[in-house]
Design a protein around this nucleic acid. Structure first.
Length: 304
DNA sequence: AAGTTGTACAACCGCGAGGCT
DNA sequence: CAGCCTCGCGGTTGTACAACT
């Protein structure tokens, strides 16, 4: 089954937009609003593909765009969010008003990557480069010994760190809320995408260290039954963390993973007090409040 | 001054998700 | 429920401009 082209390519312009084209697009959207990108070019009298129009509007013409250089504060937010979400540029952009995913992606590739490298931090793993390099060699053998474990470990990523085996048919983390299910997809995509991107060593923008992230995760899981993947998820301090993991978790916190939001709510679970986090809230899915799924359920906050 | 290399960013491409019929 | 369509995302490319030799 072939996919039909998104537009009639024979009669569409490509390349840089002219001022006239921009003006036509702006005028049309002012009158009719955004949406229905496929029919927009024809209606607006543009010889462009709908996708191209959408991109031009979102990345360049939208009136609420913030032009100009990124501030130091924005830099740090991007770094923190990237350490949390990976290359989920649209989610990162959601936390930076006036910035587009494309802009952030470009900025990351041209500025922040270099900045992190100069700090001795691997831009993909957000770990010190020398540690990462050593880990590659150290984990290669383990990966070769048990690839099935590797596969299992990377796919069983779970945000509920109190119980890493939350594999019930209905995900207890995200519940059934439709809004959250969309967000759940995003988070799931984050984990799976990162997994595949780590496999995908042909990626030209990657580094050799990229491939070690899941391996290191496996090693962590082997050494630590809590199985917290600090690479892909929000790591939460557990009552019985190994020293290594605890350090990593603290390191994450000190690097400001939580800094984008107010201090997370705390709840006593058994004898231990565990910090809980609403990702929806942190990432802007819910503005300034916990989502319904994260609110007290049976006296316990839930991860979302 | 001319050629080469590096950088920044706009734009394109292919794919997956989800809705609709 | 399969097939199609649209939208949105992430990776990649193209190109203009700056810096360097």
């Amino acid at each position: 089954m072939g996919r039909s082209p998104c537009c009639e390519k024979a009669h569409t312009n490509k390349g840089a937009w002219t001022k006239e084209e921009d003006q036509r697009l702006i005028n049309y959207i002012r009158v009719h609003g955004e949406g229905c990108w496929r029919s927009l070019p024809k209606a607006a009298g543009l010889l462009r593909c709908g996708k191209s129009c959408r991109l031009r509007w979102i990345n360049y013409l939208r009136p609420d765009l913030k032009r100009g250089n990124f501030t130091e504060e924005e830099d740090e937010i991007i770094i923190k969010l990237h350490s949390l979400l990976g290359n989920k540029w649209s989610l990162i952009a959601g936390r930076l008003p006036g910035r587009t995913d494309n802009e952030i992606k470009n900025y990351w590739n041209t500025h922040i990557k270099r900045k992190l490298i100069s700090r001795g931090i691997d831009p993909q793993s957000h770990r010190p480069i020398n540690v990462t390099t050593v880990a590659v060699a150290a984990t290669a053998t383990a990966a070769a010994l048990d690839t099935s474990t590797a596969s299992k470990s990377t796919t069983n990523i779970c945000l509920d760190f109190r119980n890493s085996s939350s594999s019930s048919p209905k995900n207890p983390i995200f519940g059934n809320n439709d809004q959250n299910s969309k967000f759940k997809d995003k988070i799931t995509a984050t984990t799976t995408t990162t997994e595949s991107s780590n496999e995908d060593t042909k990626c030209s923008s990657g580094t050799t260290e990229e491939t070690q992230a899941p391996q290191e995760h496996i090693r962590e899981q082997q050494n630590n039954t809590w199985g917290v993947n600090l690479e892909l998820c929000i790591g939460l301090p557990q009552p019985k963390f190994s020293s290594t993991t605890t350090t990593s978790a603290e390191s994450k916190a000190s690097n400001g993973i939580w800094a984008a939001a107010a201090p997370p709510p705390q709840v006593a679970t058994g004898a231990a007090v565990t910090k809980l986090v609403c990702l929806c809230w942190q990432l802007g899915h819910k503005s300034g409040q916990l989502c319904r799924n994260c609110e007290m359920a049976n006296g316990v906050y839930r991860y979302c």
